[in-house]
Design a protein around this nucleic acid. Structure first.
Lengths: 203, 203, 203, 203
DNA sequence: TATGAATGAGGCTTCATTCAT
DNA sequence: CATGAATGAAGCCTCATTCAT
């Protein structure tokens, strides 16, 4: 008995989250009223309140799941004996992000999550830890590449991790606003920079 | 023969925008009530409404001015006969961004602007054009470097522009959430990547 | 499967309209705040808004129902084989009006409805059609009387209809402002005019 | 010196009243803001407040002057040795009313004045006395006609006065709402009724 | 005396949340 | 358990009025 109803609960929860996501991506967290979510989900107020005890909780749940959790891709690469080239890693990483964007996919509302994170403590904690996590994966990737002699001896893995992490929000934003960037664009950029020794100052 | 001078008007406008910015960065566009802005600005409702005809207009004004308009830095570099090294350009660019962040500086609310841009047409138009502008500057920078033989012959200036533009939001976000990144971090990352030919796949 | 019955809905609607009418007749459409109507009706803001989506809609509903819909009386007379004398028709008609005035009856706010009709398109449409309807009944009454030889051969049924329709607002107004006129006053006036051939110009 | 400024004052007053009338006839007393009147009159807030100490005072002034003060016509007839026929009196009376309606003439807002009179004591006093005055003139007209044997011996001058007074608001309303009635329509109605002995019950 | 910027009370309306059915 | 009618606090905004210049 518990099994069935547990599944049922989970299905309901998803139904609500999906409806909320659609609404939020259309009008934003705050311009969306719960009434609209009730309508979109086909559930009553009471039903929704059985699963989320306030609008804030629902917003938080969406804000959290909107963040592209793609560390798995990086972690996977890190477990291998031989790391693939950086441009390939970047492309795979971006592929995973794009996969979660789709039309109305969770990542569509990621920018709203970032915004909320700048002033809402609980969301900040969650978003910060996700990005910190992603960043530390990138840093480890850079360390591995450096150890393998594939990044210059004097290179700064932390800085590389920061840059690659930094590119994520901007990549999402350019995709949402312009739609003219793809994973291949990022990997192409990596290839263009690498081997461009002449472009930098020699300390 | 205006009763009050143009400067007076402009000062009032700024007074309101400054108050709004403080409030918005503390609690977000939507959780901030106009009452709070009236209180923070020391003005009455009517006074504020003389300058902005709705909350939305105020929000839009802040969302727009929150976007770091730092193309000037890039344009300046582009007019020179000899371009500085890329890492230096990146660092100067980031310097300009950081300068506008400060504590409660306009850029503090930039993420809220991005979020709004994803579903608010007018804000989208404005934000999109700003980033497009920034991106096209970066693309021109990459073209110049390529022309000068400082980026590999086969490099892709557009992709480089996308990547450097992409790094901006993530740089801002990491600064707001973690505070542990600085302009020097980005330039260091550039130096680490460049000259790392071994890191990429050879087509 | 409505949660509440249709009768319940209708009762609530009337409850609100009745409260609004009382308030409006005391202080006018515009000087009455919705708070006063909430208080008078014993309902909350939200409850009232479930039935009327704006104050304007409520005002319109009252403006419309304030107009004395008394054509039924005339239509009844028109279906008979033999029309009663004009003075009797007038008196019955006025009786029906008076019946709807009472103290705080709907017709009490009729003048506010006329006023609104002069500049509010939707109200104008409604009020105009009601009076046009009333007038066309009066015109038909006059035609019947003329056909029966009870109005002079050269008489003008349209003009008679206009006059009798015209008398309605002024009758209501005199009753509201002075209270010294009654249906019998009107029928007496009709009897006084009729048979007064000497009073007119002979073309 | 006082003469000039007295004239000036009066001109200013009229300028304000004219502007107010235009605004009020377009949007009603309460939907019109003073700002609109300032704009329409070309005067500043302070200037208007020098002539009317509140909006209510301005509204009252317009409500009062909107009432067709046409007793003069009746009084003139009453001073003559020989009264003209009733249909002619009615037509002259209606002519005077129509003259004051025009497009945007004072009478255009008369219905708003009636409405206000139903719940605003000061306006009621003023409007009531005007109509009472008009009515008593009509009653005297009826008495004169009766004395001259031009109304039946048993006729009721008060009732006739009530009816003719009653026709005034309805005439104005039909003109404002339909525009298809004219002074001649009323006189035609009078001619149609008079001499229609057969139309009434014989007591 | 004239101006019009500024005030701020109060109006209309929304919407997260509750709870009787 | 589910429903959705009802609540009422709180938000945005208007506008009659004042008063420093």
């Amino acid at each position: 008995m518990p099994r069935i109803s547990e599944e049922h609960r989970e299905r309901r929860r998803q139904q609500i989250l999906d409806a909320a996501q659609i609404c939020f991506s259309r009008k934003g967290f705050h311009e969306t009223s719960l009434q609209e979510i009730f309508a979109e989900s086909g559930l009553s107020a009471g039903a929704v309140y059985r699963y989320f005890k306030s609008k804030d909780e629902l917003v938080r749940a969406i804000a959290e799941r909107s963040q592209p959790v793609v560390v798995a891709v990086l972690e996977d690469f890190l477990t291998r004996d031989v790391m693939p080239p950086l441009d390939e890693i970047v492309e795979r990483f971006a592929d995973a992000v794009v996969e979660r964007m789709g039309v109305g996919g969770p990542v569509t509302v990621a920018p709203q999550g970032w915004a909320l994170a700048t002033y809402h403590q609980a969301v900040r904690d969650c978003v910060a830890s996700l990005y910190l996590n992603t960043r530390s994966c990138w840093v480890r990737v850079a360390e591995r590449l450096k150890d393998d002699g594939r990044l210059p001896a004097g290179s700064d893995p932390f800085a590389v991790g920061v840059l690659l992490t930094a590119a994520l929000p901007g990549f999402i934003l350019q995709r949402l606003l312009f739609g003219d960037v793809a994973p291949a664009t990022l990997s192409s950029a990596i290839r263009s920079l690498v081997g461009a020794e002449a472009a930098i100052a020699h300390a």
